[in-house]
């Protein structure tokens, strides 16, 4: 009895020490994540810089205004639509690459290809945006080809929203698909070799093995990765939409997403109601994001308890 008591006292002491280790990290989160959360209140006020949080409360007016202006549906639609496309295309390309990589016998060649395919991941979106101008602006390699095909002198992709769905999808894939492919590949390697050996004895072709063994074995993992992405479907990659488009007017008129919209209201807008509008859009995004993550995580938990976030 005495021993148990002593042990629990020790455990409590240990837990308190462990808690002190968490303090610096928690402090950072409190200051830079939790305290700014008070600011969601700005979404419900008629903001004046002088009064700050004491600005007059106006209820849901900012949200009403956001939806009435027509901005809301367009921006939210673009955010969700592009993310959905990225998830779908990303899945197909990354899976195909992983399946191909799995068949390569020469491990040195495989390492070489993987190494090169990681390079874009290490570039910032800002740099990626500039690199792409060498293909897309009026001196660009691709613009020259398109320009001479259509007879337009000094053709530049940045002057209209044409082709940008493809360009943005390509840029997004280009930057990260090598990395996603490796994650899938690690899972393919983990599949029990006996399945393949049995299939080979039955005379299964390569394609048959892919569709009857590899892909079915990956389904739980595919579901988990896709659900996690769907949880984040209201959040866009700011860098992709801001730098690859070079924030050019004609492109942004169509491809404005919530994150770029909020940034511009925060940093570039001189409108008197910019703050409250940015707050309203941000809060809307945060709440939908939270609901989606919670729901998708609950589904992930059902599929594979180990993979859920919490």
């Amino acid at each position: 009895m005495a021993k148990i008591k002593k042990y629990s006292r020790l455990t409590r002491k240990r837990d308190n020490i462990l808690l002190t280790m968490c303090i610096p990290g928690l402090l950072k989160l409190i200051v830079f994540a939790y305290l700014p959360m008070i600011g969601v209140y700005l979404a419900f006020v008629d903001y004046s810089p002088r009064l700050n949080l004491a600005s007059p409360f106006i209820g849901l007016e900012n949200f009403k205004f956001f939806f009435k202006s027509g901005d809301a549906f367009r921006i939210i639609g673009t955010t969700i639509g592009t993310n959905f496309l990225f998830i779908l295309v990303g899945l197909v390309i990354a899976l195909s690459l992983a399946v191909l990589m799995n068949e390569v016998r020469n491990k040195f060649f495989l390492k070489f290809v993987q190494g090169i395919s990681f390079i874009p991941y290490f570039l910032s979106w800002l740099v990626v945006g500039y690199l792409f101008t060498a293909f897309l602006d009026n001196h660009g390699i691709i613009s020259k080809v398109v320009g001479s095909a259509t007879g337009v002198k000094d053709y530049s992709f940045y002057t209209s929203s044409d082709h940008w769905l493809g360009i943005l999808t390509f840029a997004n894939m280009w930057k990260s698909v090598g990395v996603t492919a490796v994650i899938y590949l690690a899972n393919i390697i983990g599949i029990d070799k006996e399945f393949y050996e049995a299939a080979e004895l039955d005379g299964a072709s390569w394609i048959q093995k892919v569709f009857h063994i590899t892909l079915p074995s990956l389904i739980p993992m595919i579901c988990v990765m896709t659900l996690m992405n769907i949880g984040n479907i209201v959040r866009s990659d700011f860098g992709l939409f801001f730098f690859v488009t070079r924030n050019s007017g004609p492109v942004m008129r169509v491809y404005e997403v919530i994150d770029t919209y909020v940034y511009k209201l925060t940093m570039e807008s001189t409108a008197s109601d910019a703050v409250q509008r940015a707050a309203a859009a941000g809060l809307l995004q945060s709440i939908t994001g939270m609901v989606l993550v919670t729901v998708s995580n609950a589904v992930v938990k059902k599929i594979n308890k180990e993979s859920s976030l919490y």
Binding site: C22, F32, L35, P36, M37, V262, S286, M290, Y310
Partner: peptide, 21 residues
Amino acid sequence: VSFVVFFTMMFSGGTISYYIF
């Protein structure tokens, strides 16, 4: 503690209040 860390991945006060704060 896990929850306190994780919650910041799900919900944020938004760019504007982060900026003003």
